[in-house]
Structure formats: structure tokens, C-alpha cells
Simulated scan of single mutants.
Amino acid sequence: MHVTFPGRHGADPARAVDGVDLDIRPGEIVALVGESGCGKTTLARSLLGLVPPTAGRVTFGGKPLGYSSRALKAYRKRVQLVLQDPSGSLNPRHTVYDAVAEGLRIHGYGGDEQEAVAQALSRAGLRPPERFFLRYPHELSGGQRQRVVIAGALVLEPELIVADEPVASLDASVRGEILALLLRLRAELGLSALVVTHDLGLAWNIADRVAVMYLGRIVETGEVERVLTAPQHPYTRALLSVLPEAPGDPVVLTGEPPDPSRIPSGCRFHARCQILASGEAERAGVADACRGEDLPLLDGGGRAQVACHWARAVRT
């Protein structure tokens, strides 16, 4: 899939998602990890039908996503979004009950609305649910507000949740509770989830599989334990090196990620790559390839893969 945005004042288009193939299986949690600006939120929005792809397509259950209002309405009953900031997600004038019931009303739910809202709040860990019905967002803690947002997603009984930085705005003491909740919901309801995050520690705690994204492409993917204990791509190594429990000194990347309207030739990470800068790529005989030879896209399967000339040369 590709998603491009027009450049300003005649500039080249920005390639926010520049060729991504990603599968999410039933009952699987996939973490999409990368720096701010790497394209992961645009990819998540495309999966929800909010940003149509410029090329490629989104499929769900083997069927291509349609973009008519009727098709999108049916799709969004099965795929729900959980945003980063619960305060921004909730209307301050709506009670908790109305916030959770909104999806039911949009989709013309024909059952017992109060029972459905109570069940969703209870699943999200707000018990007894009736105690929260008439409260407003400002009367809740940050963790409780995020649980209300999750309840609003759960009330339609979706098959997939796309969670964009779901705990980034929460205190450390609450983060673990929300992550445990997501894992429990997967176990009880068979939910699938795409968790978008810049935090590899979060990915380690919640995901089955991780996809590391840089400048519009996935550069390394595989089972979370394998990728995070034996990272192959220099970018993944740099991200992991700043975790408190990481051995050795943190890798300080030079410069900022390139402008997505001017993606460099060769490996898109080569201008900031510590392996190329240290001479290791030269000794492996791949320095010229790093600077000038593009890498093929990784396929969306679950096996461990890396888009790096040096990692491939060392591995072989």
C-alpha cells in the first residue's frame, strides 16, 4: 500500500506510506513501532478507511475495503479505533453512558441499549457500570477515561481494534492496567489489535508480532521476542538501545528522518546509519549498496524479515 499527499507550492508529493505489506491474523496483536513522522499513524488511518490509499488496497476477511458510505459504515462496526488522548476523544458535554452508546445509535442497534452499554463498561473494567452512567469525563481519572474510550469501541463487538498510542498520555501506574485489559480482551473475546506506538517496551509487553517502520516502510518484522532480543536492522537496534534495561551505551542517531517528499536513494536509513558510519558496512562489502541500491519490500507474513543490506550480508 502507498499513501501520498500533495506537496505544497509545487513541491514533490510526500510519500507518507511508501510500500507496506502487513497482515493481522485473527486473535493476534501486532505492534507497529517507529519514530514520530515515520508514517505509522497514516497507515493506521488507512486501515480504518479514513485515508484512501494512493495505490494498493486494504482487505478485511479476504474482501477489499469499499469506500462508499454504506461499505465504510459496515466496516467500522467490525473495526474500531482507540485514540491516544482520551480527553480529546470524549465530548465533555456527554455523559459516560452517551459516549459509549453513541456507536450503537449510529449503527441502529436493535437490542437493549442499556444492557449493551453496561456490558461494555464492565468488560473495560469499570464496575459496577451503572455507577459511571451519569458521570462526565472531567469527573474521571485519566485511566478511567481511557477505559470509557475502550468501552465505546467494544460496545459494537468489533473483530479488530486499531489503538494509536493507547497509553502514551497515561501515568506509568495506569499504563500496565490498560495493557493488561487489552490482553484480557484478546483472551476473552478473540480480538485482534494493531497497536501503534513509539515505545518498544510497550510492544514487548503486549504484542505477538512487531513491525518496525521507518520513513514510510517496514524495515524489520517478526515475532516480538525474536525481533527485540536479536534485532538485525540498525534502526531497530538504535530504538532498543535507549530502553533502561538495554545493555551497552545508547545509540544516538544523527540528524532527523529525511523529508518524505525527498526519500534518499538506496537504503532510506543510510544517512543516519551507525553501521555505515562506523565502517562495518564497508568491511562487509555492502557500503555502496547501502547508498545506492533500494531494498525489496518485506511481505506481510509472520516470519522474521529485515530490509538491510548489511544484516543480510552478515546473516549469509
Results as ranks from 00 to 15, higher is better:
H2C: 11
H2E: 12
T4F: 14
T4E: 14
F5H: 05
D12T: 05
A16K: 00
V17Q: 05
G27A: 15
V30R: 08
G34M: 00
G37D: 05
C38Y: 01
L48Y: 02
L50Q: 12
P52W: 07
R57L: 13
R57P: 06
P64L: 11
S68I: 03
L81M: 11
P92N: 08
Y97Q: 04
G103S: 14
Q114A: 14
Q119P: 02
L121K: 00
S122G: 12
A124P: 01
A124H: 06
L126Y: 00
P128F: 14
E130N: 11
E130F: 06
L134K: 13
G142W: 06
I150K: 03
A163C: 09
A172Q: 12
A172N: 15
L179I: 11
A180Y: 10
R184E: 03
R186M: 01
A207D: 02
A211Q: 01
G222T: 03
E225K: 10
T229L: 10
H233G: 03
Y235C: 01
A246H: 09
A246L: 11
P250I: 06
P250D: 02
E256R: 06
S261Q: 09
P264M: 10
H270F: 00
I275M: 12
G279A: 12
A281F: 11
V286P: 08
G292V: 12
W310K: 09
R312L: 14
V314R: 04
